[in-house]
Design a binder for these strands. Structure first.
Lengths: 215, 215
DNA sequence: TGATGTGAAGCGGTTCACAGCC
DNA sequence: GGCTGTGAACCGCTTCACATCA
């Protein structure tokens, strides 16, 4: 058990394990071994054991892991035992699509507000979420206890939006603008850059003929 | 110059370099050194040189790289000199949002068709894209020369959609369903799992107090 | 001189293999 | 016997440092 420095690769895998444990639970399984888990998504069983060992000794030798017990631990570790309140900046197509993305609600994330500069959008209600003026972000964030911000604005505005968001005390930000952002210490930024992903597919398509069998 | 096995980490960075070179070009810069590039997004200059060296000797010792020249090379390497035609499966909020995501058009990706099983959506026109019945995917894909598929359906349908898409000969797939998918050899799958990203933020939020300064 | 291209060292993450415990 | 927890080996990516060349 060393809480020191956990790699993000590890925490990402914890999410995957958690998902799998929920499935196993639904199937009525009581226990599961790291080998069985490793089979499901093809992964190395030692890695699973190591990942889990970062946070305690959850397993029982000769038996494996108790599914429900481990599920509860992972939920706690990932902070999914408490709710998170999300504010989305940018009420364009992407922002509004995310606002009712079922993946949010699925994992204790509630989208509680949208923000935009467009007068035509401010004051509207999209799904069951109100659109506020971005200039009121700090105020609304405080009142609505927002703890996660999602940036869904064009790239050229992303950095200044991030500054504003950071100033309001938000510590976790998800960015969809295809641009690298500078972030202050103590703030966690996660950028989902679709452009890079697309270009990676493009690269593959124009090299698959030569190299082939590539994964 | 070794075209053997290029890491995806490398190709992802090529995308970033390309973006930067376009900016430099817009600023009227003629040449740029790996040091200067490394400064812009904070990265190691040796890494940039190594990445580029995978594909040829584009630089000039004592000078650096010619911006326009390198830009053209990277565009070619990433396969962005030709257009790609995208079909999106799932005409829900996310699918339709992606349909007019400007990031697509920005990088030679044209969304040419949406697919769904919902009778109410089939035949509609969203933006300037038609919605087709998914059962006609192979036919439409062939006729419209689709070479990239985007999966934007609920997780439980994602695998079977992928099978169908693969059967039609598509070699590049982007998946937004929060579930790991099994893919055939020779098909490139890129999964954007928002759930994992969110849970990673959640993890950070519940550990930042203890660990702090974490990035 | 100045910046590239690259072998070598360093580092972090994954896999192996086995001691330890149920 | 079976499975966990973990040191050691391994592997790939990043960084360093420098020979090389315009």
């Amino acid at each position: 058990m060393k809480v020191e420095k956990i790699s993000e690769l590890t925490t990402n895998r914890l999410s995957v394990y958690l998902r799998c444990l929920n499935e196993l639970l639904a199937e009525g399984k009581r226990t599961v071994s790291s080998d069985k888990l490793a089979e499901r998504f093809h992964l190395n069983s030692a890695q699973i054991r190591k990942d889990l060992a970062c946070f305690g000794e959850f397993g029982v030798r000769g038996v494996g892991y108790y599914v429900e017990d481990l599920r509860d631990h992972l939920q706690k570790i990932l902070g999914l035992d408490k709710n998170h309140r999300v504010g989305i900046i940018g009420a364009g197509r992407l922002g509004t699509a995310l606002a009712d993305y079922y993946g949010f609600t699925q994992t204790n994330f509630d989208v509680v507000a949208l923000f935009d500069n467009d007068k035509g959008k401010i004051g509207q209600r999209i799904g069951d979420v109100d659109v506020f003026a971005f200039k009121n972000f700090a105020k609304v964030a405080k009142k609505d206890k927002i703890d996660v911000a999602v940036i869904a604005v064009p790239a050229q505005f992303a950095q200044s939006v991030l500054e504003e968001v950071t100033k309001s005390g938000i510590k976790a930000v998800m960015n969809f603008a295809p641009t690298p952002l500078r972030v202050h210490d103590g703030v966690k930024l996660k950028t989902i850059d679709l452009t890079i992903s697309l270009e990676s597919l493009s690269y593959f398509l124009s090299h698959v003929n030569n190299i082939n069998g590539n994964n």
